[in-house]
């Protein structure tokens, strides 16, 4: 139909905006779910240890 096809026979037109939009939202949802998860204490403890070590070394 209106879709342009390049030499390789694949669709040369960009993905339609609706699909792009849908995938974009799903991607954000996936990521935001992970980003808002509670942070384990181990990371803050690690940084506190590293900081304490710097102070000792001075």
């Amino acid at each position: 139909m209106t879709q342009a096809v390049n030499d390789l026979g694949r669709s040369a037109s960009p993905m339609d905006e609706r699909t792009k939009n849908l995938l974009g939202r799903a991607l954000k949802s996936h990521y935001d779910d992970l980003v808002t998860a509670p942070i384990p204490d181990r990371f803050l403890m690690l940084l506190a240890e590293l900081e304490a070590k710097e102070v000792r070394d001075e």
Binding site: R18, N21, L22, L23, R25, A26, L27, S29, H30, D33, L34, A37
Partner: peptide, 24 residues
Amino acid sequence: YSSKVAVQGNQDSAIDLADFRVAL
């Protein structure tokens, strides 16, 4: 991953988050 909520798309369409993660 903790949650399995659906991702609302335009109008009638939605992608299930669990399905999306499998595809990803």
